[in-house]
Structures are given as C-alpha cells and as structure tokens.
C-alpha cells in the first residue's frame, strides 16, 4: 500500500496552515506511521522553523527537482519522533522553479515507502497552490472563524472541485469558545453551513501554539495543550478513527450531534 498525500491549504495566509501541517505530521508519526512533510511554499520557507529543523537543511525541494541531489538527501529526519521527515522549500527561488508534474513525480517516489505525505501549500490560488494541489489524495482546508478567511476558503473549495479531487475537509482553527458563546464569533456550525463541506477538526485559540513555534517543537507531541489535543484528534480522524469533537467545541447540542458524524478523510488501509 502506498502513502496518502494530504495537502494542507487555505487561500488566505496566516490562518495556521504551517502549524497545522507540522502538528498533524508529528501526531501521525507519534502514532507510529511513516510521514514525510513537504514545504511547497517556495521562497517563503517556514515549515522547517515550526518543526525545529532549520539548522539541518542541506538540500531542498528545488534541488531534488533539478537533480542536484537524491530525494533521500533532501529528507531531514526529525530527532524527536522516529519516521518523521521534512523536505524543505527552497528559500532563494520562487514558485516557478517547480511544476505540478514535478510534485506528482516527487510524491510518486515517496509513496512507496511511507504512510503519509503532507504538503504545506503556500497561500494564494496561483502556481504554488497548484503545485501543492496536483498530487493530493486528500485536501485539508484550514480557515479561521473570520469573514475574509471563510470567503477565501470557499474560493479554494471551488478550485479543488474544479480539479476533480474529492471534496476537501475543513479545519476550523483559532476558535475562541468564549466569543462563540457570546454570539460574537462564527461557530463551526455556521462555517460548515456556509461552506457546505465536511469538518475534520476544530482547534481552539491557544497561546501554547506560539510557545511551541518559538521552540520549534510541534504541540501535538505532547497532549497537554488544548490545541495539541485537537491536532492529535485530527490525525486520528485521518487514520480512520471515529473521534468525537473536543469538549470545548461540543458545547451546544448541534456540535455534540455533529461530533458523532465527523468522519475520517483516509479510509483505513
């Protein structure tokens, strides 16, 4: 069985794509799966920093595509979790350095020996996004409960559908339960109704996210923070487990009902 390719995208920048990618990857690897992350944001490399691997980069994705190194040589091994690797983006090039076909080719080689390939997509709807989308089996859209982020997510959903991929799944990130309770923040129910796609996770706003990226240690490696647990739950849903929505999110009846319906992206292999 080959790996599943999961592309994490959003349209709007700054909604938490990179954090989400790093955390889902770490959680999948911690569960014993073999995981490779690819930073597809050429020219704006960041996944290395969030994963704490920035000092170990020798080769990058563009080096692989242009034949300056073997794929293996560009894979940085995480020291904390076995079987977690990162292929970093090039920092001194731009998105035109690679094509959708290159991404399909690189992931084809990785599929054989891994369980998951996570691609961190750049923001926007142009070349870089197209590169990240091309090899995807599963598309995860990260958004925030905020009008412009939701609008951009809708645009991305349309583009994913136009590529005839399976319908993307939604991660609602940075939810403030207190504001939702006061009716001052869109709740998951609202966002799902507007976007008409399936939910795979709700992540609360959590200071620990910043602390973790300061340190370069994905939160999902220890389940002590609320956001970390939410990312772990998303990873488990991807692995095919039925995981109810976290308690902070299941405050009203609708979400409790919904949580029973949240289904996985990947069918168990």
């Amino acid at each position: 069985m080959g790996a599943k390719v999961v592309t994490v995208t959003s349209g709007k920048g700054g909604v938490g794509k990179t954090t989400t990618t790093a955390n889902i990857a770490a959680a999948l690897a911690a569960a014993g799966h073999r995981v490779v992350c690819i930073d597809a944001d050429i020219g704006l490399r960041n996944l290395d920093l969030v994963m704490g691997l920035e000092n170990r980069i020798v080769y990058d994705l563009v080096d692989v595509v242009e034949g300056r190194c073997k794929l293996r040589q560009a894979m940085i091994k995480d020291k904390r979790v076995p079987n977690l690797y990162l292929i970093p983006a090039a920092q001194t090039r731009d998105k035109t350095a690679i094509s959708p076909e290159d991404m399909i080719e690189v992931t084809a080689q990785l599929r054989r020996d891994n369980d998951w390939i996570l691609i961190d997509s750049p923001a926007g709807i142009e070349g870089g996004f197209r590169n990240a989308l091309a090899p995807a089996d599963i598309v995860l859209i990260v958004t925030n409960p905020e009008v412009s982020a939701v609008r951009d997510a809708d645009r991305i959903i349309g583009l994913v559908e136009a590529e005839e991929k399976d319908p993307p799944k939604l991660i609602l990130n940075r939810v403030k339960p207190d504001m939702v309770r006061r009716g001052e923040m869109l709740k998951a129910e609202d966002v799902l109704e507007v976007l008409a796609i399936e939910l795979i996770g709700v992540v609360p706003e959590d200071e620990q996210v910043l602390t973790a990226s300061n340190r370069g240690t994905p939160l999902a490696l220890d389940g002590r923070s609320r956001a970390g647990r939410a990312f772990q739950a998303i990873a488990r849903r991807l692995m095919g487990e039925q995981v109810p929505l976290e308690e902070f999110a299941a405050e009203d009846g609708f979400l409790r009902r919904l949580s029973r319906k949240v289904r996985t992206g990947g069918q168990p292999a």
Binding site: V150, D154, R182, G183, E184, M185, K187, V194
Partner: peptide
C-alpha cells in the same frame, strides 16, 4: 442585539453566492 456572528454569517452567505 443578536451578536456580530449572525451578521458575519449572513454577509458571507450573500457574498459567496455572488463569488461562486
């Protein structure tokens, strides 16, 4: 009175119909 979340939802529904 009803909280800005409802306004956000209605505005989104309107704009997305036109976007799409």
């Amino acid at each position: 009175e009803r909280g800005s979340a409802r306004t956000a939802k209605e505005r989104l529904q309107f704009v997305l119909v036109h976007d799409r």
